[in-house]
């Protein structure tokens, strides 16, 4: 099976936001990067799929040349190669443009299943996976927490506000992965050494202009300073009083 794991290079979750002087972007100075949290789960699921059904796994990203660090780390866990759709403007590329570029690449690769994280932890949009599937005319299941996959399709479970849904789908498919689906493995030394020899291609792509425009970016307003109402269980009446009479939430 031709398996692809789509990942995004994102700032680490402890990154502090600072706005650029033009007021429209994030100042990347001081950012360190990682593979987005949920994309690690996607990579793990791709490798498990290969282990169960055979085939090969390609790690795919739209990003800068520097994303080779994240792609190599993912390959080291057991993928067979990587592709970077090289994009110097990657931080500003919108979900639709990203989905169109990925859809064209997945079609060109002859992919049968593509795993995505359910959301990237930088723009928090959660749109690229299902948009890519829609552009390809593929099946898509989002927020997968359990998966049974065969040669032609499978069933997945997803957590909703009402309970756990069971969803049947055909292949080819995009599956977006949620926490709980698996526990991502660590790369061993052998994997890290092997990853250095595996193919990592940088591919140019036909540009798709953005539709989303950032009018301005700002830091959230600081919350008004609060207060300690007291110590221990004795402070409960003071808290109840504040919640009823000041905050008016009781």
């Amino acid at each position: 099976m031709k398996i692809v794991a789509c990942i995004k290079r994102v700032p680490t979750t402890d990154a502090q936001a600072k706005i650029t002087p033009d007021g429209k972007g994030l100042d990347a100075a001081g950012f360190q990067y990682m593979t987005s949290f949920y994309d690690e789960i996607a990579v793990e699921q791709a490798i498990r799929t290969k282990e169960a059904l055979g085939g090969d796994v390609t790690v795919l990203t739209v990003g800068p040349t520097e994303a080779s660090k994240e792609v190599r780390e993912c390959i080291a866990k057991g993928a067979d190669g990587g592709v970077i759709l090289t994009d110097a403007t990657w931080t500003g590329r919108d979900a639709r443009a990203t989905a169109k570029v990925l859809a064209a690449q997945l079609a060109a690769m002859g992919a049968e299943v593509a795993f995505f994280g359910k959301v990237a932890t930088d723009r928090d949009n959660g749109a690229v996976g299902p948009m890519t599937a829609t552009y390809l005319g593929w099946a898509c299941v989002t927020d997968v927490v359990e998966l049974e996959l065969g040669a032609d399709g499978g069933t997945a479970k997803r957590e909703t506000e009402s309970g756990v849904e069971t969803v049947a789908f055909s292949l080819p498919a995009v599956l977006t992965c949620d926490k709980g689906l698996n526990e991502p493995r660590y790369a061993g030394l052998k994997g890290i050494m092997a990853a250095k020899k595996k193919p990592l291609e940088e591919v140019a792509f036909e540009d798709v202009p953005n539709q989303a425009q950032v009018a301005r970016l700002e830091l959230p307003a600081a919350r008004a300073e609060g207060r300690i109402v007291g110590q221990g269980a004795d402070a409960v009446p003071a808290l109840i009083d504040a919640l009823r009479n000041e905050a008016k939430v009781l």
């Binding site: 700032p11 990154a15 502090q16 936001a17 994030l26 932890t121 970016l217 700002e218 959230p220």
Partner: peptide, 10 residues
């Protein structure tokens, strides 16, 4: 963006 560390107007 970044889980609310920044707010974008688009």
């Amino acid at each position: 963006w970044l889980a609310g560390k920044a707010i974008a107007h688009c």
